[in-house]
Amino acid sequence: MKRLLAVLAAAAMVGGSLYLRYGDDGDEESGRADGGGEGPPQLVCDPLFEEVCDGADAEVTIEDAAATVDRLLGGDRVPDAWLAPGPWPAIVDALGTPGVPSRFDEVAPLARSGLVAVGRADLEGCGWRCFGSRVGDDDLELGWTGPATGLGLVTVGAVSSGFFRGEPFATNDLSGEFIGYLSRFADQARQARAPVQDVIVTNGSAFDVAVSPEAEAEPLVEARRGTRVGLLYPEPVVTVEAVLAGRDTDLTDSLRADLLDRGWERPSEDPTGLPSAGVLAALLGRVR
């Protein structure tokens, strides 16, 4: 399938990259306006899951999770399905009108993977608070995909949980020393489209460390054995969930199977280690 860059007004507003899948004859495949009827389902995917969505039997849009949130809050209709890291669908509801039912008919956790860092062995033992503080002090170069991406907000949640040493915290705790810590991290961390690949290919010269789900990072590290970078497991433990939300989740089984084949684990009731959707929404407002 050919993919053409689609220029949308909403994308200009949020600065997110957006792509549409087209048919081989160059004509856009007809999407379903009401979650049913003729044509393939419409599937919106955060860039973290681009390779998974490439194989889906759907009309696929790849865009940063924050761009999807902005469009939905701006009145765009809910897509048939939206694949993003777990916090994001809940953030749409958290930022919406209080008391209004969820925009999504169904939210299905598909898989999960631990959040890891890829960097030099001498960084072993440096937890999320350590990374956040050292980045803010300009003592460590951390590569990330930026706050507007699905993985970026998970990273913000991880360094925030690290600041509070894994203890629960609420929006009224986002003040004082923490605000300075978070602002310095967001200002100093370096954005890149594929920071983990950059760290591995350059043997740690592009960045000191980058953040990724373990399922995505492990095969990249294994393929480049002999480099001085490897997997690191910062504490507190944080987990990334792949969640499918929308009006039509007929794609659930195939997308889950693809994620499991890529090394993701089956979903569970275990906590992710991230703050609540409301707190993450507040953090997003601080770092964007």
Rank of each mutant, 00 (worst) to 15 (best):
R32G: 03
T202A: 12
G226A: 05
A215M: 06
S113K: 12
E222V: 12
S205A: 13
S133Q: 15
R190P: 00
V196R: 07
L115G: 02
P213A: 02
L255N: 05
P40I: 00
A170M: 02
R190I: 14
A11S: 15
G143P: 08
T227N: 09
V229G: 03
D261E: 14
C126F: 09
G285E: 07
D46S: 15
V100T: 15
L5V: 13
T68I: 02
A194M: 10
F178I: 06
L48R: 13
V78L: 01
L4I: 12
T155S: 12
G152S: 06
T239N: 01
V201E: 13
G230E: 04
S133I: 00
A117M: 14
G162T: 08
A33S: 12
E269V: 08
G96H: 06
D105S: 13
D93H: 15
V209P: 01
F178Y: 15
P109Q: 09
G127R: 08
A10T: 13
E50F: 01
P267G: 03
G166Q: 08
E28D: 00
R193P: 01
F169S: 03
G176C: 07
D253L: 11
I91S: 02
R224M: 10
A282D: 12
P275M: 03
P213F: 04
E63T: 14
A58W: 07
L259W: 09
P79S: 04
Y22S: 06
T249K: 06
C130Y: 08
D138W: 10
V199C: 03
D261I: 00
V201Q: 10
R266F: 00
F169L: 05
A111H: 11
S30I: 10
A121P: 00
V154R: 07
G16I: 00
A111C: 09
T149Q: 12
A210K: 10
A277L: 05
E265Y: 02
D261C: 00
A217C: 07
V238L: 02
G246M: 06
C126G: 00
L274G: 05
G226H: 07
E38R: 14
Y19V: 13
T239C: 01
A121Y: 11
L232S: 05
D138K: 15
G55A: 12
A117S: 11
G263R: 09
L251A: 03
A170I: 00
Y19D: 11
G39F: 08
V199M: 09
A192Q: 07
A10G: 15
E59F: 04
T202H: 12
G15K: 12
V60K: 11
G273K: 09
G152Y: 06
D173N: 14
G150I: 03
A206K: 13
A81V: 07
L43H: 09
S212E: 15
L174Q: 10
L73R: 11
C130D: 15
A117G: 14
P219N: 07
P275L: 02
R286M: 15
A223D: 12
D57N: 13
A210F: 05
D139M: 07
I91P: 04
E167H: 14
L232Q: 08
A170Y: 10
D105C: 00
G226Y: 10
T249E: 02
R224Q: 12
A56G: 03
L280K: 03
